[in-house]
Write a protein that binds this DNA or RNA. Structure first.
Lengths: 186, 186, 186, 186
DNA sequence: CATGAATGAGAATTCATTCAT
DNA sequence: GATGAATGAATTCTCATTCAT
C-alpha cells in the first residue's frame, strides 16, 4: 500500500490557511483547497472527516502558534522591560511573518462554531507561567492573568489587524511598548 | 406603508445579525435570513443588491454602533478617571446588551473581504475627538490615536470575547479600569 | 410570482418511477430524475425535502394504486367467482398497464428504509371490506384478512414478476383463478 | 491459508448481506462492507471484480438458499399433507432464522439489474421435482409448476414480509397450511 | 413593493475502484 | 493475498440570484 504522505497533509493545511487569508472562511471551499494543494478533493477526506473538523483541528493546532513563537524569543532571565518589548514585538512580527496563520486564527476565534474548540488561556499558559515568575519576584505588577493577557496581546494585535499606510508601524509599536512598560513595571 | 418598509428592512437586518451570532457568517444563507425575518428571499433583493453588499452595508452601519453607544454615555466635562471607566464599562456592557451586533462586527472586521469596507478609525473618530480635548488640556497623556484606541478598546473586547464561568467579569473589569487609569492619567 | 406547476411535480414523479423501473432504486439519482423530467435538480428540492422523502412520499401515494385500480373494477354485487377472477386479472393487468408503478412499489416495499412508511393492510382495506361482505353472507370462505390478502395478491404478483417467454401468461392466469375459486368458494 | 481466505470471503458476504438488511441495497457501499467485514476495501476486489458482480454472485448463491433449506426438511415419502406443512413452515422459519438472507434475496429479486441473473424456476427445481413425484402418483393435484410455486411460496413470504405485532404468526400460518392442503390435496 | 417558484453553479461529501507496497 | 492511500466521477443538496406575477 501507499504510505500516508505527511507532506500531503501539510500542503492541505497550508492551502487552507492561505486561502482563508485571501478569501475568508466562507470564501474557502474544499474544492479550492484541494486545487491549491494539488490533490483531489476526496484526498482531503482521507485526512479529515469533514470540513468543519478540518478547520477545528488546524485551528487547534495553530491557535497556540503565536505563543510558541513568543516562547522561543523570551527567556526567564530577561530584564522585565525587555520581556515586555519582546512580547509586543514578537506578537507583531509573528503577524507579519505568518500573516496567513495570524489571519486564520483571528477569523476562527471569532467564529461561534469554532471558537469553542480552543481556549485562549490554554494557549497562553506557558507565557503566563513565565510572567508569574516575574510577578512573584516583584519585577512585574501583580495583575490577574486575564488582564495581563488582555493588555499584552490585544492592543498589539489590534495594531496588526488595522495596520495600513497611515499607520507608521514602528513608531506606534515603540510607543505601545513604552506604555506597557510604564503600566506593568514598578 | 413607509413604516412597513422600514420595519421589513429592520427585520432583515436583525435576522441576519442574529443568525450570524448563532451560526457564523458562513453558516448564514440568504434563505435562512429570509425565513428568520419572515419574508421571501426575493424581498431581500428589494433592499440590497447582493448578499455581499448587504453584509457590507450592515457592517458599515453597525461598526460604529459601539462608539455611538459610548458617545451617549460620555460627556466632555467628566472627570478623566470617570471617562476611562465609562468607556471601558460601556464597551463591556455594549457587548452584553448587544451580543449579536458585537459578535457580528467582530466577525466582519476579521473577514478579509469585508474589513476593507470599514475603518476602525473612522468609527471611533468622535470618541477620539473627545479624547483629544482631554489630552489638549493635559487631562490625559498624549499618546497617539492608534494606541489610545488600542488600549481603550482592544483589552475590554478581549475580555468580552473570552468571558466564561471562570472569568469573574466585574472584578476583571474594575482591575482593567484601574490599570488604564494609571496608564493614561497623570 | 410564478405559480407552482403541478404538472412539473407530476413529471418529476413519473421520471422517478420510470427510471426506477429501468435502473433500480440505487441506479436512480436525483440528477437523472431531473434530466428525465426536464427540470433542474434544484427544482426537485422545491417539491421534496430530500431524495428519501421523495421516495417515501411517492411510495405512499402509489402503494395503494393497484388497490384503487381494483376497486374500480369490482362491485359488491358481482358473483363471488367473478369477484375472484376480477381481482386476479386486475392485479395482473395492472402490472402490465402500469409496469413502472408496479415495479416501483415492489422495490420500495422490499427496501427496509422505505417499507415502514407504508403498510399493506391499510392499502388493501377497501377491497378487504368488500370481501368481508361476501364472507358475511357466506359467499366466500371466512379466512382471515391476512390470508385472504396473501392468496389473492401474492401469487398473481409472483407470476407478474417472473413472467417470461416460457410462461404462457393467459393459461397460468386462468389456472390460478380456478385454483383460488376452488379454494375460496363453497 | 486456505481457511483464512475462505473465512475472509465469507465475512465479506455476511457483512454485505447484513448491511443490506439494515440499510437496503442503495445504502450499502463497498467501504461500509469492508469496514463491517474488517477488511480493506481493496481486499474485496481480490474476490470480486466489481460491486455489481459481487451482488450478482452472492445473489446467485443465496437465491437458492431457501430451497436448499427446504430440501433438508422434506422427504419423498412424507404424507402429502405433511409435505405442504413442511414447505410452508420451512419457508417461514427460513425467513426468521436467516432474516438477512431472506431480505437480501427479496430485494435483489425485485431489482431490475439483478433479477435477470437468477431465475426462480431454476432455484426451485429440486423441490418441484419432488412435487412432480407426488403429482404423478396422484397425491397432489396436477397444477402447473408456475402455479404450484406461486401458491406454495408467495403467500407465506408475503406473511413473512408483512409480519408485525398484530399478525399473530402461528395462527395465520396454520390457517394458511390448511388452505393449501385443501387446495392441493384430493 | 412583495413574492414563491425556479435555477445554474457550486457546495460538501461519498462512491467504486486502482495503485504501490 | 492483502492493504491503506489516493482519486475522478458522481452523489445529494444548498446557494445566491432571477423571474413572472
Amino acid at each position: 500500500m501507499r504510505i500516508k504522505d505527511e507532506n500531503k497533509q501539510q500542503r492541505i493545511k497550508e492551502a487552507m490557511v492561505s486561502l482563508i487569508l485571501r478569501e475568508g472562511i466562507d470564501g474557502t471551499s474544499v474544492a479550492k483547497i484541494a486545487k491549491e494543494a494539488g490533490v483531489s478533493p476526496a484526498t482531503i477526506y482521507v485526512y479529515y472527516d469533514s470540513k468543519e473538523e478540518m478547520l477545528a483541528e488546524v485551528f487547534r493546532e495553530y491557535s497556540s502558534a503565536p505563543y510558541r513563537y513568543l516562547m522561543q524569543r523570551v527567556t526567564p532571565d530577561m530584564e522585565p522591560a525587555a520581556l515586555i518589548e519582546t512580547i509586543v514585538r514578537g506578537c507583531y512580527s509573528f503577524s507579519r511573518e505568518h500573516e496567513e496563520i495570524f489571519s486564520f486564527v483571528e477569523q476562527c476565534s471569532r467564529c461561534p462554531n469554532l471558537s469553542e474548540y480552543v481556549s485562549e488561556e490554554e494557549c497562553s499558559c506557558d507565557i503566563l507561567d513565565l510572567i508569574h515568575g516575574y510577578q512573584e519576584r516583584g519585577a512585574l505588577r501583580p495583575y490577574s492573568d486575564w488582564n495581563m493577557g488582555a493588555v499584552l496581546f490585544a492592543p498589539v494585535r489590534f495594531l496588526a489587524m488595522n495596520r495600513c499606510e497611515e499607520s507608521p508601524g514602528e513608531e506606534q509599536l515603540s510607543e505601545l511598548i513604552r506604555m506597557l512598560q510604564r503600566l506593568l513595571l514598578y
